[in-house]
Nucleic acid binder design. Structure first.
Lengths: 141, 141
DNA sequence: TTTAAAGATGCGAATTGGATGCATCTATAC
DNA sequence: GTATAGATGCATCCAATTCGCATCTTTAAA
């Protein structure tokens, strides 16, 4: 019953981007955000890339590049981020089970996952940001 | 977003025990159930032990021993089994996060997990058994 | 036009939780 | 007393995940 580290990172990075967007239009650098959150730089890159490919972030290459939210935080749900980042949303692998189709558990598990995601779908990144704040200074080596 | 194999096994074994209890009072043997479900015998033992220690199963040692439900299937929820078997119900490890207490995500994640478990709490093993049936013969090598 | 900064991407190593097997012990029926 | 079946601890293995390295592309500044 755990999310992968990538999903965790994705949520943090998106929240960070949302909080940053509240203040100004400056770009965030992957390296800086990774350092701030103690996330390995390469992992942060992969997560930012994934989020950018999905349209949630805008990335600008080259010197003075970086990334920022690509659309309003009010239009992005936490559920969407989790769905994107999580490699599997099947709590169990029923493929080899002898009960197969005559099993009352699978339907139940699906409903439980649906409830989990529904809860996350009910809150937007903007709402999550309202209840959050970045420590200042954000970089406190 | 996966349950561990042990949790999966626990659900299957409990369902199996419930279905078996519907028919007669005979004991199930761990070895047999493990073979039926293609679960490694040692793992099945550990799961049965865990379930027995938690009071869900009764185990009888020695020759002609085995196990069976220790209380009515109508009084056991799927949520209870999952809570028991799952080693962690924290979808993310927030321990080292710089956002710490000023993070709007943790509360949300907790609510999502709560929704997941609530859904599983809403159905009993007896109800799950109603929608299930063991293949016959159960051992079909 | 050269250089430096910053993102993009693929590959492979390393780690770590989980799963499995082995050995041994205890209990009980026959 | 012996065979069977569960109880339990230890050791090993395995695979998903995580992480780092190397290399490439892009773009702004010098």
């Amino acid at each position: 019953m755990r999310l992968t580290a990538h999903t965790d990172y994705a949520l943090r990075i998106m929240l960070h981007a949302a909080l940053s967007a509240q203040q100004d239009e400056t770009l965030l650098s992957i390296a800086q955000v990774a350092a701030d959150h103690h996330i390995p730089r390469n992992n942060a890159m992969k997560v930012v890339n994934m989020l950018a490919n999905a349209g949630y972030l805008e990335t600008i290459r080259g010197r003075n590049g970086g990334f920022r939210l690509n659309r309003p935080a009010s239009g992005i749900t936490l559920g969407a981020i989790v769905r994107l980042a999580e490699p599997s949303l099947n709590p169990a692998d029923c493929g080899q089970c002898i009960l197969q189709s005559s099993c009352g558990l699978t339907a139940m598990l699906h409903r439980a996952v649906a409830a989990f995601l529904a809860e996350l779908d009910s809150q937007t990144l903007a709402q999550a940001a309202e209840n959050s704040s970045l420590p200042s200074p954000i970089s406190f080596l």
